[in-house]
Design a protein around this nucleic acid. Structure first.
Length: 276
DNA sequence: ACGAGGTCCTGCGAGC
DNA sequence: TGCTCGCAGGACCTCG
């Protein structure tokens, strides 16, 4: 499930392979992923339109075209964006949503088994409105612990839900929210406004550290996630809590618990290390 | 402003 | 073996 580190990995693979190049004969196989754009306008806009830049915003991949339009793809659960230097195999062609040849050789494909992913085509003004609705990037240099505390502790919602709220903070999803809360030793269900400034500072550091380490490991592959070149990530091997319910805590040996009481999502934690 | 719950989508594993 | 059912979950929506 691509969160910030996975999308960052995808973008780092895609950017050198796509920037300065042109999509040839793009084909859209499923149109239910489109948001506020018709299939026809999408294809007409991106065809023979040079890709100037591939970047990441939160969990979204952003393709900036020479025309000034941006194609924004949110892979959500099962989406993958890939560049191949060969033809796709029949197995790889399954679940392809958008595919295009590259001028000069190669193929770009967006695959998405469940198609919970979305695609937007935005002009400059629409992009500004789009990005303004999303919270700050947690790894940005100018995003400090004070800004983090200010944005995240002003509500009595559970701190885990707040961490994952894209309007408050960009890019953190279920995996890294669980991991960061474990590292910071904070009960995921604790109301955000009852997380003290010391704990909030620990959480800020934990979020940045876990995201940075996950990027270095090229993301977490549980099932579907692949890098931009089709490889699996490596962070699944070092997770402390996510997916480890019923197993012993890496720090104290207590059996980790999983609940679904926070926003209906799987939350795994150590009641001893993350005591209220 | 907040919480709860529905919706989208398909594969997979459990249970009968 | 073959069926149904519930779950996975991020973002968005409505309702109370």
């Amino acid at each position: 499930m691509p969160e910030l580190p996975e999308v960052e990995t995808i973008v780092r693979d895609l950017a050198p392979r796509l920037e300065g190049r042109t999509l040839r004969a793009p084909r859209l196989f499923k149109s239910d992923v489109l948001r506020r754009v018709s299939r026809r306008r999408l294809l007409e806009t991106i065809r023979r339109n040079r890709i100037e830049e591939v970047s990441r915003r939160a969990k979204h991949v952003v393709f900036l075209f020479k025309s000034g339009h941006r194609l924004v793809i949110q892979p959500r659960m099962t989406g993958s964006l890939l560049v191949y230097d060969r033809r796709l195999t029949p197995e790889e062609r399954r679940y392809v949503v958008l595919q295009a040849g590259l001028a000069g050789g190669g193929t770009f494909a967006y695959r998405d088994v469940r198609r919970l992913g979305t695609m937007w085509l935005l002009d400059e003004a629409a992009w500004r409105a789009y990005t303004a609705r999303i919270g700050p990037e947690p790894l940005a240099r100018d995003f400090d612990a004070a800004a983090f505390g200010e944005r995240l502790t002003g509500t009595r919602q559970a701190i885990k839900k707040v961490l994952m709220d894209q309007r408050r903070l960009a890019g953190v999803g279920n995996i890294y929210a669980n991991e960061a809360l474990f590292r910071a030793g904070i009960d995921p269900s604790r109301p955000a406004n009852r997380v003290g400034s010391e704990a909030a500072a620990r959480l800020y550091e934990a979020v940045r550290a876990v995201l940075g380490e996950a990027i270095a490991a090229k993301g977490t592959t549980f099932r579907d996630y692949r890098t931009g070149t089709g490889r699996k990530g490596g962070f699944q091997f070092v997770l402390d809590v996510y997916g480890r319910g019923g197993e012993p805590c890496h720090r104290c040996g207590t059996i980790l618990q999983t609940t679904h009481t926070i926003d209906g999502r799987a939350t795994t934690f150590c009641w001893r290390c993350q005591a209220a």
